[in-house]
Amino acid sequence: ERGPAAAGGSGQPEALSLEEILRLYNQPINEEQAWAVCYQCCGALRARARRRQPPAAGLQAPAQLRIWRDGAVSLEPAAGSGKLEHSYSSETEIIESLGIIIYKALDYGLKENEERELSPPLERLIDHMTNTVEADGGKDEGYEALDEGVEEDDEDEKEVEVIHSYKDVMKLCAAHLPTRSEAPNHYQAVCRALFAETMELYTFLAKIK
């Protein structure tokens, strides 16, 4: 598990939170970044379940989503919840919160009476994420899902109609691409670019200051 975003050899941070990215650009993320952060975050949460690590505690704010230099995305504990926090959230609760955070990142800076026109597939993804149905077993964050990556699943060709798991979110994100098998590399590259471009802006603004 990754710790806090430590400075690398260059003295620059190794990760930025989604909140830092939004504030620095002072504009919303784009749709491709939204797909990528969803995919990468769900991938990290699935991997955590496969390693039988404790389920994630609540996801409440974009400050908890960290985008790393290598394009990985991790979920940090909420501020104020220490290591001894045991009020874990279910998989569907985390997915719903992630959907809301991603939507708000797409909506960043818009007035209350304005609404961004999203592409239908992305709007459908967010709609599904915020309409999740608890899978059997409830709050176990998919410990039964010990299979490896979504791209190897025979059922991937089936359209996800109701989201039960991180894997369902990843399937929808992969289906957005012309070739589903490109999802891991593509979305990692999008997140890596998001980090790199934000750091570039950060360095530029620091120089001006």
């Binding site: 784009n30 609404e115 961004r116 026109e117 967010i126 709609d127």
Partner: peptide, 23 residues
Amino acid sequence: KGKSLYNIKPKHDSGIKAKISMK
């Protein structure tokens, strides 16, 4: 001001923004 990369429409009562804001 630079051109927006996305379209903005008035918020609709049955739209996704209204739904999310009720969560």
